[in-house]
Design a protein around this nucleic acid. Structure first.
Length: 255
DNA sequence: ATGGCGCGCGCAGCGCGA
């Protein structure tokens, strides 16, 4: 199984990139974030032509998540149970015996904002839900835009970023609590290039200067981490015309 | 390091993202 995550920053604008990437990499599952589109406008037909089923939970302008897959998903959930939220940030489904949980964690804006408190509450609710979800589904993958760089090596300039949103201690602690549920950061199971990131600001030529953060992740339960054979970030789409500011992350899991 | 980019909305310029 090849599973992937990509914050596309508008599926409408990025559909050609997504179709190219699907054709080139042939993943079994691709989780998308920031589709920014109501469900009625989702490009189901174009993706079906490319051989992918789509499940999606979107809204106008903001947020929105989707799961593209070769095989159909079952037991789909579109919210964290018990956590009231008008923002479409969660999509979970079961594909080939694997629980796929696609998340778009709130950005948080700045650590002194209400949005930051929402982010922390959201992450707490996620943890509570995943605790149960893991008892039901031993083979679980948590993929998405976490909006958290977990370690210093995940930030191009950790001194500058210390205490700022995306790299503050409360966020990193929330990330560690997810790991404590028994999840593994699949990217760190393998040797990786120095200064590997998954997001670069559109401004300041940040990509060309590799001023990035690793905030998109694939976390795996033990039953998936053991057979995981690779995890990498594909920076190639970030080099294209009109790119998303995020790069896809891809993991391969053996039988 | 945060004005500088890109998106949606909607037709000017603002809110938001990270």
């Amino acid at each position: 199984m090849k599973i992937a995550t990509w914050n596309v920053n508008s599926i409408k604008v990025r559909l050609p990139h997504v179709l190219d990437w699907l054709a080139a990499h042939q993943p079994d599952v691709l989780c998308l974030q920031e589709t920014k589109l109501e469900d009625a406008n989702f490009p189901t037909a174009e993706l079906a032509t490319a051989g992918y089923q789509a499940q999606f939970s979107g809204q106008k302008t903001y947020n929105g998540v989707a799961i593209l897959s070769r095989l159909a998903g079952t037991d789909t959930v579109m919210a964290i149970p018990g956590f009231t939220d008008v923002q479409k940030r969660v999509l979970a489904t079961t594909i080939a015996g694997m629980r796929i949980v696609n998340i778009y964690v709130p950005n948080g804006q700045s650590v002194d904002s209400d949005k930051f408190q929402y982010k922390l509450a959201w992450l707490q609710a996620l943890k509570t839900w995943l605790t149960e979800e893991l008892t039901r589904h031993p083979k679980l993958a948590l993929l998405g835009d976490f909006n958290i760089a977990p370690e210093e090596r995940d930030v191009y300039d950790p001194q500058t970023w210390e205490g700022l949103v995306l790299f503050s201690q409360p966020e990193r602690e929330a990330f560690r609590q997810l790991l404590r549920l028994g999840l593994t950061d699949s990217f760190r199971l393998f040797d990786q290039p120095e200064k590997s990131y998954s997001w670069w600001d559109y401004r300041m030529n940040a990509f060309r200067r590799n001023m990035g953060l690793r905030i998109d992740h694939i976390l795996l339960s033990g039953a998936l981490a053991r057979p995981c054979t690779s995890c990498r970030i594909d920076a190639a789409p970030r080099k294209q015309e009109r790119p998303s500011d995020h790069a896809p992350v891809v993991a391969e899991i053996g039988n």
